[in-house]
Design a protein around this nucleic acid. Structure first.
Length: 235
DNA sequence: TCATTAAATTGTT
DNA sequence: AACAATTTAATGA
């Protein structure tokens, strides 16, 4: 199995196209940006690979360039609870990186993904030097908090249609995942892993949501037509 | 570039 | 969980 240890080994600098997917680079001053880019590394994650696991010390602040990740935590009773999915453009672990603690959740690749990493030392340097970066991280923390609370509610909800809808709405969160367009590349199988339902039930829910005009189902993904409807469940 | 084949994904049962 | 139908990706002429 590949862990974060091996992730640190086979890594390389980022291409220009990959840098373009990183939302916070645009809020930096030229000198800050230069330092960040110099430190950024990228690596592959195969489906099932853990990018980070609970209890491991934080060495990098991670972000997704391409692919799809799942953020989850293990309950006391051994049950795994999925917080949310992470689409390209999403960055995570800032809370633990701030305090230099250990990870409180697992991040696992749902499909072949490109993961970028910024060393915690550089992360802290940016916090000390860049106002824009501070704003970005602050907003990120705030949104993430709201998302965790929402995840608890989603988990308790019985109606699978609503569950799928709100999970999709969370994936489209414009603050946490700014680079995302209206099209989300996610298979129904991946969606099933994310919300903890069977694939056929997800299929049923997506068909329902599509008939209500909230989304359009496409091959290998879907298009969000009415984000508000997904959030509120009013279709 | 096009046609054929393999693989992935979806929609149903 | 299994199936057929459909879409995309890969291959090679």
């Amino acid at each position: 199995m590949s862990t974060e240890a091996s992730l640190l080994q086979r890594r390389r600098p980022l291409t220009a196209a990959e840098l373009g997917v990183i939302p916070w680079l645009t809020v930096l001053q030229p000198d800050e940006r230069e330092r960040a880019v110099a430190d950024l590394k990228i690596t592959d994650a195969k489906p099932g690979d853990f990018v980070c696991r609970t209890g491991r010390p934080v060495t990098y602040w991670f972000g997704l360039v391409d692919g799809l990740l799942k953020m989850s935590a293990d309950n006391i009773d051994g049950q795994t609870m999925t917080f949310t999915g992470v689409p390209p453009g999403g960055w995570f672990g800032e809370g633990t990186a701030l305090k230099r603690e250990v990870y409180r959740y697992n991040i696992q690749a749902l499909r072949k993904s490109l993961v970028a990493g910024l060393h915690v030392d550089t992360f802290h340097w940016l916090l000390d030097h860049s106002i824009g970066f501070n704003r970005f991280v602050m907003r990120q923390l705030n949104e993430r908090l709201g998302q965790f609370i929402a995840a608890r509610e989603i988990d308790r909800m019985g109606n699978p249609n609503i569950r799928v809808a709100r999970s999709l709405a969370a994936l489209f969160n414009p603050v946490l995942y700014p680079g995302l367009g209206a099209v989300l590349r996610i298979t129904q199988q991946e969606m099933a892993y994310l919300v903890g339902l069977s694939r056929q039930r997800v299929n049923e829910a997506l068909t329902k949501l599509a008939s209500e005009g909230a989304i359009a189902v496409e091959y290998g993904g879907l298009r969000v037509l009415n984000l508000q409807a997904l959030r509120t469940g009013m279709f």
